[in-house]
């Protein structure tokens, strides 16, 4: 049980690191939001669940935190992306691609 929890915690840490790295590396605002939101959401889920395996008596509250992150995190990133879209933030295009703004 504790070993499974530790493995989940390390996987979560790796995904949190990838989230930070994605935010640093991606070329425009929307791609950064995607990398940041997705990787950190799964990373946080996995890490918190791992802590729940190590400490089973906290499991209920930890699941409450997970549900809360699952509801609010996509909403927050969506609101942010919508604001960036409405203000006409810079959009990265692949070289040699011609595309209208919205199809």
């Amino acid at each position: 049980m504790i070993i499974a929890g530790n493995i989940l915690m390390v996987i979560g840490g790796v995904f949190l690191l990838l989230g930070g790295f994605g935010v640093l590396r991606m070329p425009d605002v929307f791609n950064r939001i995607q990398a940041g939101t997705k990787a950190t959401t799964l990373g946080a889920f996995s890490l918190i669940l791992g802590v729940g395996f190590v400490h089973p008596q906290w499991l209920l509250k930890l699941i409450l935190i997970i549900v809360f992150i699952a509801i609010t995190n996509p909403v927050g990133s969506s609101v942010l992306a919508r604001a960036a879209y409405k203000k006409g933030a810079y959009q990265y295009k692949k070289e040699g691609e011609e595309r209208s703004e919205v199809k």
């Binding site: 995904f15 990838l18 790295f21 994605g22 590396r25 991606m26 070329p27 425009d28 929307f30 791609n31 995607q34 990398a35 997705k38 990787a39 959401t41 799964l42 889920f45 879209y85 959009q91 990265y92 295009k93 692949k94 691609e97 595309r99 703004e101 919205v102 199809k103």
Partner: peptide, 24 residues
């Protein structure tokens, strides 16, 4: 969610960054 994260991890980590973004 898991598939999404593996996909994103691949895109973030590969040196050429295989992305082709757009709004649909």
């Amino acid at each position: 969610l898991v598939i999404a994260n593996l996909d994103m991890a691949y895109r973030v980590l590969s040196p050429k960054m295989p992305i082709n973004p757009g709004i649909v």
